[in-house]
Design a protein around this nucleic acid. Structure first.
Length: 867
RNA sequence: GCCCGGGUGGCGAAAUGGCAGACGCAAGGGACUUAAAAUCCCUUGACCGAAAGGUCGUGCGGGUUCGACUCCCGCCCCGGGCACCA
């Protein structure tokens, strides 16, 4: 029978709540070290918690509980990223305020998180939709605005007429997949100048303790490239191109302008004008996606004009092609087909000349060679390396006024407005005489108006445009009439700074108290999904740097250490395929859409039980029909697939501690791993064994084996081995092996006739970060009155780890032949002697010359023999 | 195409260059029980062998080393991200 987790867990949750066990004082003892451990806060969706949430949350909770026991002041908060499109969609459908559904969803999430026993300081709970929170989000925007980092711009946006909403680029695919249409439309937008921070956002990555892959993704996103801008003369006009390879100027055989380039119409010759105009029109109607997706085949049109290459006065033809982007660099390039893949494809297709100017290493074809080499056919520069050439030619361009060294970034400014209701209103007014005016700080927050209809206006104005009374305001500068801004901020806004508000969540005079900020920041451990690798983490870093420049925060980076948890997939599924005739079809004959590759027939997927399967090679086949291979895969959890695991169900059946422990035991935190219901049962059995160490299962009284006797050497050793392993593994967040060490301890402990309290109590302490309810309960049953949350963490002693004798494996020529048992203090010579004596080893030495005797202390003997 | 991860028993996994497979699951056998559940004990990488023991084995092919899952070189497969950024 299972231990009564259903009584124990709610009781301790109530205890922690009543006693405010995990309250972090507003004025902590600053003599102690601090530890700020943060989860990426969730969007409280209507679906409630899924098993992916507790994975990261348990990982941080273990660390938080451990650090408290190590004497740290710990800040471990939780809150809600509660603006979001689903609530708005719901409001449009029902006419209810989005706040209603949002509050309901938050209540569900809060209940579910409390049910899992996380040690959050719930007094610091915040939601981005709280008006007090919105106030400071707006305040930060004002600082950004005042620093000239926000501007209005007409920008093409993704407008969905079905949703009546504008979507972010990264949201387009998601909603298209759900069947909504999305089109391009130009709208007035607010944009933030994140590009002004590109260099700092790039440079400061170096000092962060983040996964290298995430840093690399951010670097690629920022996309710094160094090169030069060079002027080419076309008639009386100068056209500037950007190149990272000014050393290939002598190889430029044509030039390409982006279709949007303003000079295109002007330079096109009358004979080419029609073709050029047609091409531009075609390019304009394509979406970004179409332009890039059809990238395989290059298109373009000759303008009829020629440009003059400044290095050799050669006349080169000017083309228009959409493989040159208007948004990057100058929207114009010099094409060097010999040494650029795209130019090479284009030149090949349109039969343009290809001139070699870089000599690649021996044996490499120069056509399409894009690496560094030695300059050729470049006049006086011949013989220079790529690096030297770049430097010299850039200097020459600058001297002669024909160009300049230049750094470009892929990063674009951040489209920051949304045409939605459920977001933070911009604290801005449009005054007829003064233009755009900021709302004075003492009038914040600008609240959302009460509305009946949350849809945008039919002409695409944001929903707030319907609130005609709300829009009317007085200009704080001239006192004249003004209209409120009707755009709202994107969901990112609230998540850009929430980690600061946790530090001082009820401060009504400042975003955060500077002394508290200085004490707690930066975040020491930030855990969340890799899906936020670029956007959230880049935006938050940007806002943080602006606040740093404003003097609001004391450190240039918000998140010192970052860990991404791996996704939890559904249970492993074995799928076989059947055709209409009912015959099985082997997996290699099935294409990605479930069709028979040979006949094109649609096949029926059939789920198989593992009892029907056997391993063959690196896959599985049917036991009854070994020529039929099946597909073995774990899939992402999704409603449509029906493989979603609900944490509520697990807690009901096995308890919160079992769920926590299982998710940590599955494998390394950062790895993708499939769920296994049997695995949950396994850790539940372990928790039962722990319970039975202390409590007699029949009587529910304390176990008769508990004793006040002195522990044996063996018992001390078992305990201290566990303490050492668990301590080290928690520091490294290698929780799966920590749990394994505790299992080994319990497996051993349950064989003992007597269990000293001095052994079981420290064990409960090291178990407590993982299974806090059970640990508290047993700690309490052993007679301790108070929570164990602040008990000092047990310390292992090396002397207890020592064994009197140790076993040493003996190899001959690197192959294991025998084992010897020696006193652990034995000298090398004694050990070698014992190894040579070893009965299993001797046959392998007989009659052979021993050339070398290798001894690795405490580990291994290897005897190298000749022949 | 480019950039990251990853590939070890039937499955999840473990292993500072030093006994590959700890721990858990599953499977098989046994104890307890009228019986079942629960619990406990034993076996369990593959192959040869009655056993002792031996051979092979960490995606594939090479290399370094007394010794390689681990380090180096070249590939293959799977997952994720980016994708005409000059």
């Amino acid at each position: 029978m299972a231990y009564p987790f259903f009584e124990i867990e709610p009781r301790w949750q109530a205890f922690w709540e009543e006693n405010k066990t995990f309250r972090t004082p507003d004025e902590p003892d600053v003599e102690r070290p601090k530890f700020y451990v943060l989860d990426m806060f969730p969007y409280p969706s209507a679906q409630g918690l899924h098993v992916g949430h507790p994975e990261g949350y348990t990982a941080t909770d273990i660390l938080a509980r451990y650090k408290r026991m190590r004497g740290f002041n710990v800040l471990h908060p939780m809150g809600w990223d509660s603006f979001g499109l689903p609530a708005e969609q719901f409001a449009i459908k029902t006419g209810n305020h989005p706040r209603e559904i949002t509050d309901e969803n938050i209540a569900t999430f809060r209940r579910q998180l409390k049910m899992l026993g996380f040690s959050y300081d719930w007094d610091r709970e915040i939601a981005t939709t709280d008006e007090e929170y919105v106030r400071w989000t707006q305040w930060i925007f004002l600082q950004i605005f005042k620093r000239g980092l926000a501007y209005e711009s007409d920008m093409p946006v993704n407008w969905s007429p079905d949703l009546c909403a504008v979507l972010a680029n990264e949201e387009v695919e998601e909603w298209r997949a759900k069947g909504y249409t999305v089109e391009r439309r130009s709208m007035r937008q607010w944009v933030l100048k994140i590009t002004e921070y590109a260099e700092r956002l790039l440079a400061d990555l170096d000092g962060l303790d983040w996964p290298e892959s995430i840093k690399e993704m951010q670097r690629n996103w920022i996309g710094k490239s160094e090169g030069a801008e060079v002027d080419f003369q076309i008639g009386e006009d100068k056209v500037r191109v950007f190149t990272t390879r000014p050393d290939t100027l002598f190889g430029a055989t044509y030039m390409v302008l982006a279709p949007e380039h303003p000079l295109v119409d002007k330079i096109a010759t009358p004979e080419q004008a029609e073709a050029v105009a047609a091409y531009r029109a075609a390019a304009a109607s394509k979406s970004d996606l179409e332009r890039t997706e059809l990238a395989k085949d290059k298109t373009g049109v000759f303008t009829g004009a020629y440009a003059v290459n400044p290095v050799n006065q050669e006349r080169i033809p000017v083309w228009v092609a959409d493989y040159v982007l208007w948004g990057y660099g100058t929207g114009a390039i010099m094409a060097v087909p010999a040494h650029d893949t795209r130019d090479f494809e284009f030149a090949t297709k349109f039969d343009l000349p290809i001139i070699q100017v870089v000599e690649p290493p021996e044996g490499v074809d120069w056509r399409g060679y894009v690496g560094d080499g030695i300059a050729v056919h470049s006049g006086e520069y011949d013989g220079l390396t790529t690096a030297e050439f770049k430097q010299k030619i850039t200097a020459w361009l600058e001297e002669t006024g024909q160009g300049v060294g230049k750094v470009n970034y892929k990063l674009r400014d951040w489209l920051f407005s949304r045409q939605r209701f459920w977001g933070e209103p911009f604290p801005l007014l449009h005054c007829e005489t003064c233009g755009v005016v900021t709302v004075p700080e003492d009038q914040l927050p600008v609240r959302l108006p009460a509305m009946q209809d949350y849809r945008p206006t039919p002409d695409g104005q944001p929903p707030l445009a319907r609130a005609t009374e709300w829009r009317k305001a007085k200009c704080p500068q001239c006192g004249g009439p003004a209209l409120r801004e009707t755009n709202t901020m994107p969901q990112w806004a609230g998540s850009c700074w929430y980690y600061l508000r946790y530090i001082d969540p009820r401060n009504s005079t400042a975003l955060v108290d500077p002394a508290k900020e200085k004490y707690w920041m930066p975040v020491d451990m930030y855990v969340g999904g890799a899906e936020h690798a670029v956007l959230h983490l880049l935006y938050a870093r940007f806002w943080h740097k602006v606040l740093y420049d404003c003097g609001v925060v004391s450190h240039p980076e918000p998140f010192q250490k970052l860990v991404n948890q791996g996704m939890i997939l559904g249970e492993m599924e074995y799928t076989a395929y059947r055709n209409a005739a009912g015959e099985f079809v082997s997996a290699e004959q099935v294409d990605d859409n479930g069709m028979d590759k040979r006949t094109g027939e649609k096949l029926m997927p059939v789920k198989m039980a593992d009892a029907d399967l056997q391993k063959q090679g690196d896959g599985f086949v049917l036991k009854k029909q070994a020529d039929i291979r099946v597909v073995a895969r774990a899939h992402k959890m999704s409603k449509s697939r029906g493989n979603v695991i609900n944490p509520d169900d697990i807690v009901k059946e096995y308890g919160a501690d079992a769920l926590r422990l299982y998710e940590m035991f599955m494998g390394p935190l950062t790895q993708v791993k499939p769920w296994s219901m049997k695995g949950v049962e396994g850790v539940a059995r372990f928790l039962n064994r722990v319970y039975r160490l202390v409590v007699d299962e029949e009587t529910r009284a304390l176990s008769a084996k508990l004793s006040d006797a002195e522990p044996t050497r063996e018992q001390l050793r078992a305990l201290h081995v566990a303490i050492k392993k668990v301590t080290g593994d928690i520091e490294k967040m290698e929780y799966n092996t920590a749990i394994s060490a505790m299992m080994i301890f319990v497996n051993e402990a349950q064989t003992w006739d007597a269990l000293p309290r001095t052994i079981v109590e420290p064990f409960l302490l090291i178990l407590s970060p993982f299974a806090p309810h059970l640990a508290e309960e047993l700690w309490n049953r052993l007679g301790n009155e108070d929570t164990l949350a602040y008990e000092p963490w047990p310390v292992w002693k090396e002397e207890f780890l020592q064994e009197e004798t140790i076993e040493i494996p003996v190899q001959v020529n690197g192959r294991l032949r025998g084992r010897i048992r020696v006193p652990s203090a034995a000298a090398e010579s004694e050990i070698i002697a014992a190894a040579l004596e070893c009965a299993e080893v001797q046959p392998h030495l007989a009659g052979k010359e021993i050339k070398k005797k290798i001894y690795i202390p405490q580990r291994m003997v290897n005897l190298v023999v000749a022949g």
